[in-house]
Design a protein around this nucleic acid. Structure first.
Lengths: 150, 150
DNA sequence: CCCTAATACGTGTCTATACATTTAATATCA
DNA sequence: TGATATTAAATGTATAGACACGTATTAGGG
């Protein structure tokens, strides 16, 4: 299970760069699957969870849809539709922005904050279970990932 | 652009583990976006490209749909439907398996091999452009990723 | 002030992921 | 053998990612 080669039944890679691309894609899938296991009982997708965290970070200050989009992990995803789903679950509110009627102000509701609160304990346990690295290695990996993207 | 904090406009993280999860999700998105740029002119999605590479690795030996599924980077994706799309593009062939009629033998066509061949040069350039790490760092990162998953 | 450009958001479409269910074929074993 | 379980693949449905396009509103320059 440990090695990538075994996990995807590939004997070898052309070079370490090629392996790294595949390794990142595979590890992402590993992470997201585990995350889904935690989020599913709460009826949230990973991106919905992310949007809720972004809104909580605002401490009550309303945020526009495009500002949410800028902060999302996946810049190509569709904040407008995610906001729609969260509104249907009563986890956020949409308000017409008076100063610019093109914009829509989004705030997290008490219910949204409560769901995040319940989730928090599960998510902390999740990080420690799912990432089999010590703190030194985690810091190293963060440094390498930041450098990778230039 | 370099730091994660800047890219997603988040001031700080609770701990390095939490940052690592976010960093992996964000870097994945960065990688896949770049990959899409290369694949789009060839009318292939990243997963379709991956399935083609799996089939090329078989060197002409037919493979079943479930064997493709096992080798895919994302174990949750749907090999059956991906195979369907590739067949429609004439990049693979499906043959009824005589020894077990539940199974379907899949092989890459000459056209499929030709497309992969054309892609190869672009993809090698892609790796070096998109991964701003030297070889030593790449090897280190592969080791850390393998350890991360336990 | 008007014309044009830029911006904010929504919508449409195709593909892929996630997961449950279905159907057909084979395996198992009383 | 015949009932049951297991397996291979396909299908159904909801959400999300990728990207083009549409619409309303504001900004800016003549």
């Amino acid at each position: 299970m440990g090695s990538l080669e075994e996990a995807i039944k590939q004997k070898e890679f052309k070079d370490p760069y090629n392996k790294l691309v595949v390794n990142l894609l595979y590890t992402h899938s590993y992470l997201v699957s585990a995350q889904n296991g935690v989020l599913k009982p709460f009826d949230l997708s990973p991106e919905q969870y992310n949007v809720l965290r972004i809104l909580r970070g605002q401490n009550g200050v309303p945020t526009t849809v495009s500002s949410i989009q800028d902060r999302m992990l996946n810049k190509m995803s569709n904040a407008s539709r995610l906001v729609d789903k969260l509104k249907a679950k009563l986890l956020i509110e949409r308000r017409e922005c008076p100063s610019d009627r093109r914009q829509v102000d989004i705030v997290i509701t008490d219910k949204g904050l409560q769901v995040l609160n319940e989730l928090q304990a599960y998510m902390e346990g999740f990080n420690n279970e799912v990432i089999n690295l010590n703190e030194e290695e985690v810091v190293m990996m963060n440094t390498l990932l930041d450098k990778l993207r230039g």
